[in-house]
Design a protein around this nucleic acid. Structure first.
Lengths: 335, 335
DNA sequence: CTGTTAGCGCTTTCAA
DNA sequence: TTGAAAGCGCTAACAG
């Protein structure tokens, strides 16, 4: 089934069918109806490849998701797709592996899909600055921080990870904790881990408390399992700690479970704060103390900035969305 | 950058460049090297649209994911992508809305991507049998049950939901529970809900226990929030129940949280079993009694069947993967 | 308002 | 082993 078949069956030319299917105004109502009838009858759809082969821009916004299993990213994706439905743009989703170079992928997607904009979920522009620099179309990184790159149209919307981590650390300090362990990501990897760590350290430094990395920092992937393992490691290396700062809720929950298995109750024996504020954090027992990232706002603002850049030539921006601190039930007051 | 530009720069014809880029054997080593040098220099990639416009089959397997936020589906997706990496096929992912018609989407994908096979995650062929019937290429539905459709190449790999639900119900009965509430999906919707319900009812019937739908069945979406709400509803309508059969772990956890807020401890006051066996189920407090669906096996077997159909013309099959019952800590023995 | 036609970038025959 | 050229299905410019 091609546009040619439809044209033949309608007794008109391919150009006419194309015009009908693309809602061009210069077709008589009668012809339009005749064509649509045949199209409906066969459930005909235009071949997107041929279309894109011609097109200069496709009225599509592509969403590149890196690391499909993150709960946070999934909420963002869902929200963005919902928000885009009523818009004139259609959405495409490309799922990338944890280890792909998202900027290279974006260049390929740009070339093949000719989108009017690209949304990155879970990418780190810092790592691929050079490749990003080649990307000459409106882009926005959502949830990861990005700094401006000269000569690009790259925006970012994120939570202020540094300040949020400060906030969590301050809270633990206020509650009387000074022996604090950290369960965090690999510091060579994502910039997010680094920023959260920096915020945490800054607060401790301000309070005049030293942090012994070798003893008190356990590296983990962002998973239940690794959170649990890290908690085990931490309790061995630093048995008298009274609190743990976990860099994600998922890690925190893994840790709580392991602590329970080791006979340490949260928050009675050990206090813990998480990060992200995923829905699960308020359904867990105990409810988690955490930093809630406002995913809906992140998604909405990200999309708004992108549309601004696309439609009104706005300059790229790097924005923070306010976080909320949730006290939960997983931290005990010591003093 | 097109193949033409490359050809000009190499001083050869486009056909030659095409042959090099597609690893055809009939190119002299010298030419191949010359071309590859230029290609590398520009990071050139073929335009996939033009390629697909010509191609008959694309050595691609497309994965259609319906309802991107399900944890179970995400594990399946991750596993499939990992398993496909070393294969000669490349994987494409299409994310569908909860309310899309996946068979129609599949027809479009078939036409546009020309895949050699399609994997459905989270679709329900029962609902769109007619559209599926038009799909003349190897397909497999993973995790949802499907019955054979005449004249198609549609396979399915799933857990035996009926038997698994029987098993859970039997377990509750063995533990002395007879007043059992159900938190389940909409019975008009997915076939999975229906099968789990049927299994549950069958066990109760065998034990000679009546089930009062109006009083003991609370409908919920597969989310924490709805699970919690449903638990509230159930406790109002059926305050003396001693156990709850929840059709997913996520619902079960929502319910446990709500029960705790209502002052009812799990398992001391109310017992609960979940379904799916997501990783969280063993990190929750209490550990959840649940049916573990073996996602890795589901994914592997699904892919195997698909490859069999593609490469060896195997007939479509409808297979079950054994489930595991996990006793957890969320059910108390009454007698 | 409608028909005709030149490509979009690529693969693949056919000739050389 | 290589070059030339015919399309794949579609859009848009042009002619009528």
């Amino acid at each position: 089934m091609t546009i040619k078949d439809i044209a033949r069956e309608c007794g008109c030319a391919v150009g006419t069918v194309s015009r009908v299917l693309n809602n061009h105004p210069d077709v008589s109502e009668k012809t339009r109806e005749k064509v649509m009838a045949v199209v409906k009858k066969h459930d005909f759809i235009l071949n997107a490849n041929a279309k894109l082969l011609k097109a200069q821009d496709s009225k599509t916004i592509q969403i590149l998701v890196k690391g499909s299993s993150s709960i946070l990213l999934n909420s963002l994706l869902e929200r963005i797709q919902k928000r885009m439905e009523p818009l004139q743009y259609s959405a495409g989703v490309v799922v990338l592996d944890e280890y792909d170079n998202e900027a290279k992928a974006a260049n390929r997607v740009y070339y093949e899909q000719k989108p009017v904009g690209i949304i990155f979920l879970g990418g780190s522009p810092d790592l691929f600055e050079e490749d990003f620099a080649r990307l000459q179309l409106p882009c926005v990184v959502i949830s990861n921080e990005a700094k401006p790159i000269e000569g690009t149209l790259l925006s970012s919307v994120s939570t202020d990870n540094f300040t949020a981590a400060c906030h969590s650390a301050d809270y633990l300090l206020q509650m009387g904790h000074t022996k604090i362990g950290v369960i965090g990501g690999d510091l060579c990897g994502s910039g997010i881990t680094q920023r959260r760590y920096d915020g945490f350290l800054a607060s401790l430094a301000k309070a005049g408390i030293a942090f012994d990395f070798a003893k008190a920092y356990a590296t983990a992937k962002y998973s239940f399992e690794d959170g649990a393992k890290a908690a085990g490691t931490l309790m061995e290396r630093y048995p008298d700690l009274t609190a743990i700062f976990a860099m994600s809720d998922v890690m925190a929950i893994g840790a709580i479970r392991r602590l329970a298995d080791l006979g340490r109750r949260v928050p009675d024996d050990v206090s813990i704060v998480g990060f992200d504020g995923i829905p699960l954090s308020e359904y867990y027992q105990p409810r988690l103390a955490t930093i809630r990232q406002q995913t809906d706002l992140l998604a909405d603002e990200g999309l708004n900035i992108l549309l601004d850049t696309i439609e009104r030539n706005a300059s790229p921006r790097n924005t923070f969305i306010p976080f909320e601190f949730i006290a939960g039930e997983s931290v005990r007051r010591l003093i």
